[in-house]
Nucleic acid binder design. Structure first.
Length: 330
DNA sequence: CTTACCTA
DNA sequence: TAGGTAAGG
């Protein structure tokens, strides 16, 4: 993927950092004022790795979520509140393992966390885009239109939103811990090309969306009762669409939501055209140091080392871009 | 999650 | 140099 621009679902990445970068008992990394810094650590070091590998990252931030997502957002808040209670209980009992698990589950991506992340990326000279609504939809649009070569997210929704290429596990660390166990599994980047996928499954994007709607999406979290991935695939393969299956393998009264409207949210999401060319810029070293070292107590030597790596990575990336640009002439 | 350090 | 582990803020 050297020399390619990749649209990164920023909230997806930040949320993972908030959940994962913690001590054994679940305490997040914090500065001397008690503010969380896990997101800054994750963004700083991973972005440097990505740039060093020759990829040009483009971070796409969420805007205002669509009204149709509010039930799902409420559901997530409830889960977090329950996790918070369980964390308290685990803390009283001194159950370190459980403390970490429930602390991770109660991670909240606050406004401050999102804004600080943007500021750090901008100081690093990394392109940042603000989506009007769903970041994942905007990233998919950028990829579909060729502004970026692929979208990076852990969520498969990217494909429903029309991303022609999806990269999962865009990270250099080759290990991931299995939930609740001391077992690590090897993780490597996973690349999904939509055309190849659609051919293999013999499904269109619309049909993939219908399968999603049957099993449940952010806009209808419950899905259709009794229908999981296997049945949904079977039904859409057999009838081609939800409407054709209603009255046959689908009972109309089980579909208590506007599936045509949800389909449209995926097919035609609110997105915007980028208002300038998407390029990396020279890092503002002083600003990076100001944010990480002065404001948030990062180790000066580590930050200096990171900045040096970032510089070198960008230089190679820029040279490569010039060369591939030249290649087009010959 | 990523880095830094230690051991074999 | 690979693999395991503690620390990072």
């Amino acid at each position: 993927m050297k020399g390619k621009k990749i649209a990164i679902d920023a909230y997806n990445a930040i949320y993972q950092f908030l959940a994962a970068i913690r001590q054994t008992d679940g305490t997040p990394l914090m500065d001397s004022k008690g503010r969380p810094t896990s997101h800054l650590s994750g963004i700083f070091y991973r972005t440097i790795n990505i740039v060093e590998s020759g990829i040009i990252p483009v971070y796409v931030f969420d805007g205002k979520p669509p009204e149709e997502k509010s039930a799902e957002l409420r559901r997530r808040i409830e889960i977090k509140e329950k996790a918070m209670e369980k964390y308290e209980q685990a803390r009283k009992e001194g159950e370190i393992r459980s403390m970490k698990k429930y602390a991770q589950m109660s991670s909240r991506l606050t406004n401050a966390v999102a804004e600080e992340s943007k500021e750090l990326l901008q100081a690093m000279g990394i392109p940042v885009l603000q989506a009007p609504s769903e970041g994942e939809a905007e990233a998919a649009y950028l990829t579909h239109k060729g502004y970026t070569w692929a979208s990076a997210s852990q969520d498969y929704d990217s494909l429903l939103f029309g991303a022609d290429r999806l990269v999962r596990n865009l990270t250099l660390s080759g290990k991931r811990k299995l939930p609740n166990k001391d077992v690590y599994v090897d993780i490597s980047p996973q690349f999904i090309d939509f055309v190849t996928l659609a051919k293999k499954l013999e499904l269109s994007r619309e049909q993939l969306i219908d399968i999603g709607i049957l099993v449940g999406t952010d806009y209808n979290p419950e899905g259709v009762k009794g229908i999981g991935a296997k049945t949904a695939l079977k039904i859409i393969k057999k009838y081609g669409s939800i409407e054709n299956a209603i009255g046959k393998d689908l009972d109309e009264k089980d579909i208590d939501f506007d599936y045509k409207h949800i389909r449209k949210l995926f097919l035609d999401p609110k997105v915007s055209e980028p208002n300038s060319t998407i390029e990396m810029e020279n890092p503002n070293e002083d600003r990076i140091r100001e944010i990480l070292v002065n404001e948030h107590d990062f180790n000066e030597d580590r930050v200096a080392n990171g900045i040096a790596r970032l510089h070198k990575g960008m230089k190679i990336s820029k040279n490569m871009e010039r060369q591939t640009g030249l290649d087009k002439w010959f």
